[in-house]
Design a binder for these strands. Structure first.
Lengths: 344, 344
DNA sequence: TCCTTTTATGTAAGCGTTTACATTTTTTTC
DNA sequence: GAAAAAAATGTAAACGCTTACATAAAAGGA
């Protein structure tokens, strides 16, 4: 059995309350007593049991993070941002990526009811609406990430996908391209939806319609970018530029272009979205939209902690949209190469 | 207050023991009672409190993962592997990446003494020896990851960095290169050390010594690869091939090569280690050593769970070394390109 | 010196579960 | 239909901590 507070108290000839006080810096303690307790605790390698403490305090010092998948750079950075804030505040991170076996909503409910965490950060661009329903069931502070423009009545942080897409599209138009295609993201994905909206609004605002043949579906995967590219380039009427809804698909396009001898941007301009590392090192550097992922994570974590501490009302809806930024590489036809982009 | 077991018991007119049994599928319960309890629980959205359960059972159903940094693909995949196993076994993951403020050892002790987790997976290629000392202090099952060839008396999983490096070096030698340089990883990093050892042994075994001018230090970062490359190529006697101790540095070399008009592999052959995504899409595809990162994570998690369940003796040292595999791209001078490497 | 504060410590009741053991109810057996 | 066995439920003591309240010790004030 792990040494516990009783053992320490016994050995020090004091009560457990005193030991507890020492470890919580609470109430007045005679210095000699404190030293003694710490001394004995050190000898026995005693550390207060967090589970018991949590039960008593009704506080776990842990925040839960629920992610759809845990295998790409995007999510990695989110966690990194959250982790940084958590660490600084001596909070722990319980991470769960939802696998196919178990839908996100269930995972979430499980978390919520479990008493394992003090609050939750949820990234689930596919099921935002249902989440909001569930929210009412729980008293846990909850922060949603990247849940689309339309989301209200809840605390959420997101990035301005719409604006990023709009600006990128205008950038392409500024190049003189008229036949601009798009490879969309997953149907239900709110980020993909916002990006598409930004794209199509920019097209419309510039008197360029959306031709069916220039709109193809994708699922954010390398593969779907690869095939999306081939499909578009196989059209009678080839696009002059292709807006990929994320970088991973754009990278698939690079691969397809290479294998079919198509030059980027000579034959067709390409843009992505996310600004992942691979897009920075590929030649020509991928023109894309940077989204402040780490910042998204840390802001969400900070706000969540405020909710937990009661510094803000957890039931008060709040929304913050971080701005995105165009990153101009060479893939859109601009003359920027890769060189020194990272070293700088 | 969260509804608790008492509330449910009261409403059902049964004792809390009965309610507990229903939720644990333990002991015989009349079907009608079970239904009633579940029904009421559903109405009140009751879920057993895991903290209390953990206290009582002395089991948290949580495994701790301690990583040095949380921001690169390598670690992402480790977590992914662990997460997958954890999820399948209904275990949660408490993740901590050690920041500068707090050294790994401390974090670990904190974890260990906290009663927050049932076991720990620790990746800390820098401080393996000290960890082994600490190990004795704790009764927590502990699995070490990537701790170098020399590590004994503990449970550890690693990949065969030595052999991978040895084989890669021989591959380069097979190309006919004689002046082969290496950019090393961090001094203390056991993986870097093993890779260097494999490299130098292969050189020695093939009667090719190590010239000082062809051995430069690096720290696994893009930047250090960039500068390492420039430094080597600035030698009077340029290398014919460079063995980078990881992919990230090799990618830095690509960038440096591009900006200084050096052709890979025409002017100099390049190899990496890790087989990260970016190395797969760059042109020419980076020749590298694949290490089964996800598998490493999942094996470690599986073994840890066995230790926790008592299926294996947690104090029994155990070591498993997963094999690495050469991935031949075009950067070493072989004729493989990138094309369709990923799509296949 | 005695009374009043202040400081230090102790007592005991939670926190929400699990579970060994005891008890009651139901079913089986003869 | 009673005894025995099996099934269902209840009681109460942990688990290791925090904390309100009570008490004891020390310090200050007259």
């Amino acid at each position: 059995m792990q040494t516990n507070i009783n053992e320490i108290a016994r050995r020090c000839g004091v009560s457990i309350a005193t030991v507890s006080r020492v470890f919580n810096n609470k109430g007045p303690i005679k210095e000699s007593t404190r030293q003694k307790v710490l001394q004995v605790a050190r000898e026995l390698n005693y550390h207060p049991n967090y589970t018991a403490r949590g039960l008593s305090r009704r506080k776990t010092d842990t925040i839960g993070v629920i992610l759809p998948e845990l295998n790409d750079e995007f999510f990695m950075n989110i966690i990194h941002g959250i982790d940084e804030v958590a660490n600084r505040n001596k909070q722990y991170l319980l991470v769960s990526s939802s696998h196919s076996r178990r839908n996100d909503v269930e995972t979430m409910l499980d978390f919520m009811g479990s008493g394992r965490v003090d609050g939750i950060i949820l990234l689930a661009p596919g099921i935002c609406e249902s989440v909001i329903e569930l929210k009412t069931k729980s008293r846990y502070p909850l922060v949603l990430l990247n849940c689309g423009k339309g989301i209200k009545d809840i605390v959420s942080f997101g990035v301005d996908n719409y604006r990023g897409a709009y600006l990128m599209t205008e950038h392409l138009i500024g190049h003189g391209y008229r036949k601009i295609a798009i490879v969309k993201g997953p149907e239900q994905n709110t980020e993909a939806i916002d990006r598409f909206q930004g794209f199509s609004d920019a097209m419309r605002d510039n008197r360029l319609g959306l031709k069916d043949a220039l709109v193809v579906s994708g699922d954010f995967s390398f593969k779907s970018g690869y095939y999306g590219f081939l499909r578009l380039m196989g059209n009678k009427e080839q696009p002059e530029a292709i807006f990929f809804s994320n970088d991973m698909m754009a990278l698939g396009a690079y691969d397809a272009a290479r294998s079919s001898g198509i030059n980027i941007p000579g034959d067709v301009a390409i843009t992505g979205f996310d600004d992942i590392f691979s897009g920075r090192i590929i030649d020509p550097r991928l023109t894309t939209v940077n989204i402040p992922i780490m910042e998204l994570g840390s802001k969400a974590a900070e706000y969540l902690l405020k909710m937990i501490k009661g510094e803000v009302d957890p039931r008060q809806p709040y929304k913050e949209v971080l701005s995105t930024a165009l990153i101009i590489g060479g893939s859109c036809g601009c003359s920027n190469g890769t060189t020194s982009k990272i070293i700088a």
